Amino acid sequence: MYKFVEGQPLIVTEKMKEDFWRDGYIIVKQLLTKGEIQKVVGSLEAPDSAVMAESYEQDDGFGRNVRMVLWNHPGNDVTGMVNRCEKMVNTCEKLLGDDVYHYHSKFVMKEPHTGGAFQWHQDYGYWYLNGVLFPDMISVQIGVDRMDKENGCLQVLRGSHRMGRVEHGRIGQQAGADLERVAEAEKVLDKVSVELDQGDALFFHCNLLHTSSANNSSRRRWAMICCYNSVNNDPVKKHHHASYTPLHKVSNSAIMDCKNLNDLSGKWFVNPNKTGREYLPTEPRKQ
């Protein structure tokens, strides 16, 4: 477990790389400051939040829903600054060993007592179907709220990324990994509950098997997940996530400096529950 020190660059050490490639993930404490989290949350909780206007519900296959909002191009609002800031992007690049571009990001919102579960899956389990040839991809989950076992935090099988891609099918509106394969993996790999405080970040490999249970607690469980692909791994076909688009990094201070809390110019949303809300990679959404 590592810690980001505000005002200093996040140095990715050889030990961090070693841990990432051995376990499939690392945790960086306080990647986002309390002020940065409050700014992001404020932009979402505002009655006129343009980002939340693009949210939708997804069936978990067991009678519950998870609310989500998903976008591809990061844009210039405060959530886009999180996607583009150096402490996020540079860390992904150092861990993968290549430059990256923004593949997509989302907020996952599990409300108290009602928020649904996510089935065991690998992100590359379905990104593979988008024409992405190699698992040279990484995701970063940020705790917007405190995330623990009680409210449905992420669970991972440590080292499962070394299994390669597992076959996936559909469970409700979600993609789920072959449960027989998962059961065998559980016999030989440690299952870890990834508990995060506000602002903590989990950097994880796209083949890491992970799941999360329903939120049966009285507390909200919101998370932001930012996903990146290697620039040398451009998908070979058009699909509903971003193909290679140069990522323009910003300084870490850009999150707090950003005044565009509701400006969606340059963003590209995907909402499967709305007709006409999926945009081709060559046609980013225009305001």
Score class of each variant (00 low, 15 high):
9 P>Y: 13
10 L>N: 09
12 V>Y: 02
15 K>D: 14
18 E>G: 03
25 Y>L: 10
29 K>E: 15
29 K>H: 12
29 K>R: 15
32 L>P: 01
36 E>I: 08
38 Q>H: 09
42 G>W: 06
44 L>C: 13
51 V>F: 03
54 E>I: 02
54 E>M: 12
55 S>G: 08
57 E>G: 08
58 Q>Y: 00
60 D>G: 03
65 N>T: 13
67 R>K: 14
67 R>W: 08
69 V>S: 01
70 L>G: 01
77 D>R: 05
77 D>Y: 12
78 V>P: 07
78 V>Q: 07
80 G>K: 00
84 R>G: 01
87 K>V: 03
87 K>Q: 10
90 N>M: 04
94 K>H: 10
99 D>M: 06
100 V>M: 05
101 Y>T: 07
101 Y>R: 06
103 Y>H: 15
110 K>C: 11
111 E>H: 09
112 P>Q: 13
122 Q>I: 12
123 D>G: 10
124 Y>R: 06
124 Y>M: 10
126 Y>P: 08
128 Y>H: 14
133 L>A: 15
134 F>D: 14
135 P>H: 08
137 M>K: 03
149 K>W: 02
153 C>P: 06
155 Q>G: 02
160 S>F: 09
162 R>Q: 14
163 M>W: 06
165 R>V: 15
168 H>A: 09
171 I>Q: 13
174 Q>D: 03
176 G>I: 10
178 D>Y: 03
179 L>S: 12
181 R>N: 08
185 A>Q: 04
191 K>E: 11
194 V>M: 14
197 D>E: 15
199 G>C: 05
202 L>E: 07
203 F>I: 04
207 N>M: 07
211 T>R: 11
211 T>H: 12
219 R>M: 07
220 R>L: 10
220 R>H: 05
225 I>L: 13
232 N>R: 09
235 P>Y: 01
235 P>H: 02
236 V>A: 02
237 K>S: 03
239 H>Q: 13
242 A>N: 10
260 N>E: 10
265 S>M: 04
270 V>G: 10
274 K>D: 03
275 T>D: 13
276 G>I: 06
281 P>D: 11
